[in-house]
Amino acid sequence: MDIKQLKFLIALDETRHFGQAAARCHITQPTLSMRLRNLEQELGLELVQRGQRFEGFSEDGKRILAWARTVMAAHDGLYAEAAACRGQLVGTLRLGVVPLAGFDPMRLVKQFAEAHPGLRFELFSLSSEQILERLSSNQIDLGLSYVEHLDRQHYQSLELAESRMGLLYDQRYFQLPNQPLNWEDLAELPLGLLSSGMHFRQSIDHNLRSRGITPVPRLETDAVHQLLQAVSAGTCCAVIPLNSGLNDFTENLTLTPIEDAHTLAPLGLIMRGLGQRSALAQACFDQAKILLLNEK
């Protein structure tokens, strides 16, 4: 067994396709299949369910896959730790972010990139539940998510900011007063909202319903870029966090604060608990602390 076989196994899980997994690993598909069969023979287990195409992992395969992720995380952590001992920070920082976070993740990425030119970044749009799941399984290093009900024994968090809300609209299609709005002002507007059940949407619904307003959105989506496209097309207005950075994409977008509007839970940067975190995650977490301290 070698580390590449585990890398191939993880790539297959993430792509769910033999050809795509092979392309990601820069090898041919027959080579990937042969190396995975060699791994199965060495372990004496069938890991991958095969038909004419990839059909999933066996129950044994799912258990081995979890170990493969742990081993790969330790492997990557070893190199990152060695670089940290040399005063360097290298590798790939994997950051999970909830949709419409009330803190612009690019502020963190920009600071990390400027301080450590050798870093690469992978960003994932995930629900708050998915962020905790991927943190616990070493699939991401840090999460930008809500910190309510966070298990402080297994996770450490840095509260970033209270997520206040505003109304985003395109001034070519809507003329609204350039002053704070109230929730009642939104009742007659065509609203575009994230899909029902998403955390930020729950906060919007709570604010509206607590004032006797039942939201009837013109458009619902689980993708932030589609929401921005709809606003730019004049299809709707959208309630978004004030400090998300999303209102800066075009000069026609205007973001007006809504009075007494905030999310149900504070937003924070989350990391695995002591003994489970990588040197990379710890360094970036500490740097985020400095960023916030300098802004106070």
Rank of each mutant, 00 (worst) to 15 (best):
L6Y: 00
K7R: 15
F8S: 00
F8I: 07
L9S: 05
I10W: 03
I10T: 06
I10E: 02
L12H: 00
D13T: 02
D13R: 01
D13E: 09
R16S: 14
R16L: 13
R16D: 09
R16Q: 13
F18N: 04
G19K: 12
G19C: 10
Q20D: 06
A21Y: 00
A22S: 01
A23E: 07
R24P: 02
R24F: 08
C25T: 09
H26Y: 05
H26M: 08
H26C: 08
I27S: 06
T28L: 03
T28S: 13
T28M: 12
T28K: 12
T28E: 07
Q29V: 04
P30Y: 02
P30R: 11
T31Q: 01
L32S: 00
L32W: 01
S33A: 02
S33L: 08
R35N: 08
L36I: 06
L36S: 00
L36K: 01
R37K: 13
R37Q: 08
R37V: 07
N38Q: 14
N38A: 15
L39N: 00
L39M: 05
E40V: 00
E40A: 02
Q41N: 15
Q41M: 13
E42P: 03
E42G: 11
E42K: 10
G44I: 08
L45R: 09
L45Y: 11
L45Q: 08
L45M: 14
L45N: 07
L45F: 04
E46K: 14
E46H: 13
L47F: 05
V48I: 04
Q49Y: 13
R50E: 07
R50C: 12
G51K: 06
G51D: 06
G51M: 09
G51A: 09
Q52E: 08
Q52R: 12
Q52V: 10
Q52A: 12
F54M: 07
E55I: 14
E55F: 13
E55A: 15
G56F: 04
G56R: 04
F57S: 05
F57M: 04
F57D: 05
S58M: 08
S58K: 08
E59M: 11
E59Y: 07
E59P: 02
D60C: 03
D60S: 11
D60N: 10
K62A: 05
K62N: 06
K62G: 02
I64R: 08
I64G: 05
I64L: 09
I64M: 03
L65Q: 01
A66I: 04
A68T: 06
A68H: 06
A68C: 12
A68Y: 07
R69W: 14
T70Q: 15
T70L: 15
T70C: 14
T70R: 15
M72I: 09
M72D: 07
M72Y: 03
A73S: 15
A73L: 11
A73G: 14
H75Q: 14
H75W: 13
H75M: 05
H75L: 10
D76R: 14
D76C: 10
L78E: 12
L78P: 04
L78W: 11
L78N: 10
A80R: 10
A80M: 14
A80P: 06
E81R: 05
A82F: 09
A82R: 11
A83T: 09
A83M: 11
A84K: 12
